[in-house]
């Protein structure tokens, strides 16, 4: 057939038909998307439900030279990671990747710890292990210079940068200053949430621990969370409801937190604190800094809200040194 045959010029020719239908599909998709946005069908996020687990002890505190072995030991003392991570679970691990600093400055979570945790999650049957943080510094530099990007990729985990459209206003069942605060969808829509903060100094709250680390799933103007931060952090913790809290206190930042930047401010304590109760874990972590749990506002608020207990003297804490 010749190229200038009318059949080729007609809009019903095969080539044109394909072209037009592809264009139609795309424009429908876009129009549909625009309509969705206009109609405001965006749901509000509901608080995350936590699985009921009965652990062997309420907190495991492990001291040891090898951070990977310490982590495994801590999970064994609690009764195994299998209690928290079931087969085909989507697991979210939230380390602290907030700052563009190397691992030696204890501003971010230890990459070895994250690597080992991702591996263990997969071993427990997790379908997907997601790692992310809404960083304070440039996201790419934070992910790479902290060593966590490499660590997660090496373990086969899914590490990615946060995207604006996934921050969805939170809807609290009670009155809260955090009402309508944008919270990352993936942090709520998961089967298991593991919070892996690093223990460090913070001049406003006193210390950055697990509850403060949850700020990394928030969007919006996060600086404004600092205005009345204690209550906000308690509500946020109740909303996210982490299944497991593992505090990295292998190296702790004693001064000039939360970003640090000087190895003289860092002290090696070789400790891992793990437990299902975020308040108790934070309460115990204060002792590493020679503080009392009541010195940190958000821990007090968390205990008041009955998220957990800040009474470290009566809790069943298993301390092991390897």
């Amino acid at each position: 057939m010749e190229k200038n045959h009318p059949y080729h010029q007609s809009w019903t020719s095969r080539k044109n038909f394909l072209k037009y239908s592809a264009a139609a599909v795309w424009s429908l998709l876009f129009a549909g998307g625009a309509l969705k946005q206009l109609m405001g069908q965006e749901k509000n996020l509901r608080p995350r439900k936590k699985r009921a687990v009965s652990c062997a002890c309420s907190l495991a505190v492990i001291r040891g030279d090898d951070i990977r072995a310490s982590l495994r030991k801590a999970l064994d003392e609690l009764g195994g990671l299998g209690l928290f991570v079931k087969k085909n679970d989507t697991v979210v691990i939230k380390p602290n990747i907030g700052w563009n600093r190397g691992p030696e400055f204890a501003a971010n979570t230890n990459p070895d710890l994250v690597n080992e945790l991702v591996t263990l999650c997969y071993r427990s049957g997790a379908k997907k292990v997601r790692v992310f943080d809404n960083t304070c510094n440039n996201e790419k530099m934070c992910y790479h210079n902290s060593g966590i990007y490499r660590a997660v990729k090496d373990a086969g985990g899914d590490i990615y940068y946060v995207s604006d459209w996934k921050f969805i206003p939170a809807n609290f069942p009670y009155e809260s200053p955090m009402q309508d605060w944008p919270i990352y969808k993936d942090a709520v829509e998961c089967d298991c949430f593991i919070n892996v903060p690093v223990a460090k100094h913070h001049s406003l709250t006193g210390l950055t621990l697990s509850m403060k680390n949850l700020m990394g799933v928030c969007g919006g103007s996060r600086g404004q969370m600092h205005w009345g931060i204690d209550k906000k952090l308690a509500d946020l913790t109740a909303f996210i409801n982490p299944d497991l809290t593992i505090i990295d206190a292998y190296k702790i930042l004693l001064r000039h937190g939360p970003s640090g930047g000087n190895t003289n401010d860092v002290e090696t304590r070789k400790t891992i604190i793990a437990g299902p109760d975020p308040v108790l874990a934070d309460a115990y972590a204060t002792t590493l800094f020679n503080m009392r749990p009541s010195d940190v506002g958000y821990i007090v608020r968390g205990a008041e809200k009955k998220i957990g207990s800040m009474d470290i003297s009566s809790a069943s804490i298993k301390k092991v040194t390897i």
Binding site: G223, H226, W227, G228, H256, S259, G260, G261, D265
Partner: peptide
């Protein structure tokens, strides 16, 4: 500035200051 003006704790600027001695 919120602490000066309203007497509310804030210090986001101090938190983010990257100089290690602040």
């Amino acid at each position: 500035c919120v602490p000066y003006k309203k007497g509310i704790d804030c210090i986001v600027c101090e938190e983010h200051c990257p100089v290690s001695e602040k």
